[in-house]
Simulated assay, not measured.
Amino acid sequence: MNVLVVGGAGYIGSHCVVQLVEAGHRPVVVDNLAFGHRGAVKDGVPFYEADLGDREAMAKILKDEQIDIVMHFAAFTYVGESVTEPLKYYRNNVGATLELIQAMVDTGVNKFIFSSTCATFGVVESLPIVETLPQSPINPYGQTKLDLENALRAITKTSDFSAAIFRYFNAAGAAEDGSIGEDHQPETHLIPLCFDAATGRRGALKVFGSDYPTPDGTCLRDYVHVDDLSRAHIAVFDKLGTPGTCVDYNLGTGNPSSVLEVINAVKEVTGLDVPYEMDDRREGDPPALYADSKKANEELGWVPKYNDITSLVASAWKWHKDHPKGYDDK
């Protein structure tokens, strides 16, 4: 298939592009490079520097490249920024994405895979998190993702459009060959922050909260490898053949790790100390978040390859030790 990967120069999108090629598909990348990196897109993959909200440009690419299916990885994802700049998030995550969908409708491209988030659930009352739990986001980022989920449900009910929704937990890791990996500015993810503290690129890591009702008092989170996430997006292709289909899946290992467990895994993998200091809890941080991915397993045959924190950290370290400045090292 010809697959348009919007946000394909970003972290998860670039890994999915690699897997699409390996699976025999033909990816085409669109990215405005606001957060993506041109160096993350392999040679030979068609690349367009464009904005997903430019309906005319998107329609032309969809037609010229004879696109069969669209994958969306182009959201803004910083929770704190979404609170202080909500308009920026609604404009891109909702408004611009609807322009892309309209371009698809206008050109007869009717299969869409949407990158969503567990943040749509907000503070949950039970664990693990299953797809049927109430969705009640507590920040604008999560709300914009839920708004798009609801839009897709409405669109697929009244048209030939079909969609798949994937709710990620904590994406981590890097490609097995170490050629592409995680490079965010600013960086907010725990594992690369641990690497930066261990290598002296930043000061001591701050651990927010040590008195949670968890085994070691720190938050528990579900870390899922970026390649595992990518495989699910390809596995869902067969589900989108029936017009009007809308399916949703939570993607996580169901095997959460605490902040201190992640720090210890980084120490073990790197052989370096990770200086850290305890700080107060952050408002809105629940004690634990982890997925029940039984639905993805049963319907897509999806089983995470990386199911323990040490192997996932080792994968991420391979990239970071060779690219301490990210793609700027190339």
Rank of each mutant, 00 (worst) to 15 (best):
S230M: 05
R221H: 07
I234H: 09
A235K: 15
D238I: 00
L240R: 14
D238K: 15
D216H: 00
L240E: 12
D238P: 00
P213F: 02
Y223K: 11
C219L: 09
Y223E: 12
D222C: 09
H225N: 07
P213Q: 05
A235E: 15
Y223M: 06
A232R: 12
D228L: 01
P213Y: 01
D227V: 03
H225R: 11
R231T: 02
D216M: 04
G241M: 09
L240K: 14
D238M: 05
G241Q: 15
H225G: 01
T242I: 12
H233Y: 12
V224S: 10
Y223P: 14
G241F: 08
P215E: 07
V236R: 10
R221V: 13
T214E: 06
V236C: 12
I234F: 01
F237D: 07
V226I: 15
V236G: 05
D238E: 14
S230A: 15
D222H: 14
T218R: 04
V226Y: 13
P213K: 02
T214A: 08
K239F: 08
C219T: 15
A232I: 08
L220S: 08
R231D: 06
G217V: 00
T218S: 06
F237R: 15
D216I: 05
V236W: 13
Y223L: 09
K239P: 00
T214P: 01
D222E: 13
P213R: 04
P213S: 10
D228V: 05
R221D: 12
H233V: 03
P213G: 10
A235L: 13
